[in-house]
Design a protein around this nucleic acid. Structure first.
Lengths: 212, 212
DNA sequence: ACCTGAACACCGTTCAAGT
DNA sequence: ACCTGAACACCGTTCAAGT
């Protein structure tokens, strides 16, 4: 028999546990409650134990982002038109994020590191390619879709919800802001889903026209 | 003569000085360097002196955001088509923010409290109204433009610049991500301005089609 | 090898005191 | 009235020590 190597003490946690504990903290107490100490407490260990699994707080945040995004189905949907297929892909992303609104501010920062985002982007590009988009036009189309998705999701979740937004809108003097105060009334009647769909539809129409 | 009231000690600072000192800190050392202590040092006072002018750090951030946005000309531009006029208004916003990329993460959070954003929105709505948009269609058009602007500006400034983004894209296996690796090469040749303009143009085309 | 506890260098903010 | 300095309750992270 060969000499038995010193048995490494088994890890007591997995990155997946880290991610879901951190997400639980955020969902329950908000993004500002996400601290190394809070996540450690959630897992019943000491704060420093986390550093066996992540290099720093930044990496913990990236883990949370991927935890949320990993639920997105990145397979190409079966719909007939390419507009519908792109629309479904964007909607899947929106729905996944909508379940955890408090993580929204983390998304722009950590989007790059997410394997799910890479696969999602690959699928979107495939649909666009089939639809005849190539070269610069495809780059512009992709970035426009991403920009709209990122922006619309943020507007939806860091928007009027924060409270002071709607208040400021409601207290506008119709004399100084005629269009704005008129639109504020209309805006209250538009459901977030319809707003998101409507904007996405505008962009998809623009893409369709540009491909003529 | 009446009894002379106790002369209030004159304030040594103005909110404008606070705002520009805070912006100077951010521009020089980045957003993470924005602390009450750093701004106080920039102004040559004690940290607690700032609390005479702002209630808390949040209000300081709002001041910085407005400092950046206040340079935006919110008057309706003279261009002929409504598409061009909306386009110019969005571009003005982008240019103002582009001068201070480090404040980008603050914008979604404090956008609501900015008087400049209110005036800008009023102007955009006016152009849309002239173009025949009303009711729900106008709400959707405005929110779509805002979403695109917010998202595209963030993608531009927290995008590949952060480093790890382009690295991740460059190291993709063409086998697993054929479209993505092909597009990554194309993407490097598209200038940020052209990308932003192109996406905005897609949205404006969509708006034009929807108004038929 | 993995985990812990104390400690360091920061934060924002409260409070009592100075002029 | 306005400003200051010390102090409090937090952070993320380093380090030396335990098992």
């Amino acid at each position: 028999m060969y000499a038995v190597k010193a048995m490494p003490r088994p890890r007591s946690l997995t990155p997946a546990q880290l991610a879901s504990a951190a997400l639980a903290v955020i969902d329950r107490d908000g993004l500002s409650a996400l601290t190394m100490r809070a996540v450690a407490q959630e897992l019943g260990t000491s704060p420093m134990a986390l550093y066996r699994y992540v290099a720093d707080r930044d990496e913990l945040e990236a883990l949370v982002v991927e935890e949320v995004l990993s639920t997105v189905d990145t397979a190409a949907p079966p719909d007939e038109s390419w507009q519908d297929r792109v629309g479904v892909l964007v909607q899947r992303m929106r729905v996944a994020i909508g379940g955890h609104p408090a993580v929204v501010p983390l998304l722009p920062v950590h989007r790059h590191r997410s394997p799910t985002v890479l696969r999602w982007t690959e699928t979107v590009l495939g649909v666009l390619a089939e639809a005849g988009f190539a070269g610069t036009r495809r780059v512009v189309a992709l970035r426009a879709l991403l920009a709209y998705a990122v922006g619309a999701i943020q507007l939806e979740h860091l928007g009027p919800l924060s409270g002071s937004g709607t208040d400021a809108m409601a207290g506008l003097s119709p004399a100084e802001f005629p269009h704005l105060s008129a639109t504020a009334a209309d805006a209250r009647r538009v459901r977030p889903d319809a707003e998101f769909d409507g904007g996405l539809d505008l962009l998809l129409r623009g893409l369709a026209v540009s491909s003529d």
